Structures are given as C-alpha cells and as structure tokens.
Amino acid sequence: TIDEIIKALEQAVKDNKPIQVGNYTVTSADEAEKLAKKLKKEY
C-alpha cells in the first residue's frame, strides 16, 4: 500500500540509505518527500 511505501521511505531516510521504489531511486529526505507527495496524488 501507499502507507507502506511511505514508511519504507521514512525508514530509509533515517538510515540514510538510498532506496528503490518502483522506477524511482530515492537518496535523500527531500526526494523521499517529493516522491511521497507524488504517490499520494496518484493513488
């Protein structure tokens, strides 16, 4: 679900690790936030 994706992003940001979500690779908190907002609009 979208919530699980967002939790995974938040965890990756805390661990400061890049995370791959679908076609996106998120490497920073800023990118994670942008991706989360984008995904919320889509779903």
Rank of each mutant, 00 (worst) to 15 (best):
K37S: 12
K17I: 11
N16R: 08
A36E: 02
E42G: 07
Y24R: 03
Y43V: 10
N16Q: 12
E33F: 09
V13G: 07
D15R: 01
L35W: 03
E4M: 11
V13D: 02
I5N: 00
K37M: 14
E33A: 14
K17Q: 10
D30S: 11
K34V: 12
T25Q: 10
Q11I: 05
E33Y: 09
D15T: 07
K41T: 13
K40W: 11
N16H: 08
D15M: 08
Y24D: 02
L35E: 01
K34D: 11
T27D: 13
E10D: 05
V21S: 01
E33D: 12
Q11K: 09
V21G: 02
A32Y: 03
E33G: 07
L39G: 01
T1L: 11
A8R: 07
N23K: 12
D15C: 14
D3Y: 13
T25V: 12
L39W: 01
L39E: 01
K34H: 09
D30R: 09
K17E: 04
P18F: 06
N23D: 14
Y43G: 07
E4D: 12
V21W: 07
A8I: 13
A12S: 06
K40T: 07
A8S: 08
I6R: 03
S28G: 14
L35Y: 02
T25K: 08
Y24P: 01
Y43T: 08
E42V: 06
E31R: 00
N23G: 15
S28Q: 02
A29F: 05
G22H: 07
D3I: 11
A32W: 03
K38R: 09
A29G: 12
G22Q: 04
A12F: 15
E42R: 05
E33H: 08
A8P: 01
L39T: 00
D30Q: 12
K14Q: 10
E31I: 04
I19H: 02
I5W: 11
Q20C: 15
V26N: 01
E33W: 06
Y43S: 07
D15H: 06
L35P: 00
K7G: 05
T25G: 05
P18V: 09
T1A: 11
E42F: 11
K7Y: 10
I19W: 04
Q11H: 04
V21M: 06
T27V: 13
K37P: 01
E42L: 13
A12K: 02
I2N: 02
T1Y: 11
K37N: 15
E42I: 14
Y24T: 05
K17P: 02
D3C: 14
A29I: 09
Q20A: 10
I19F: 08
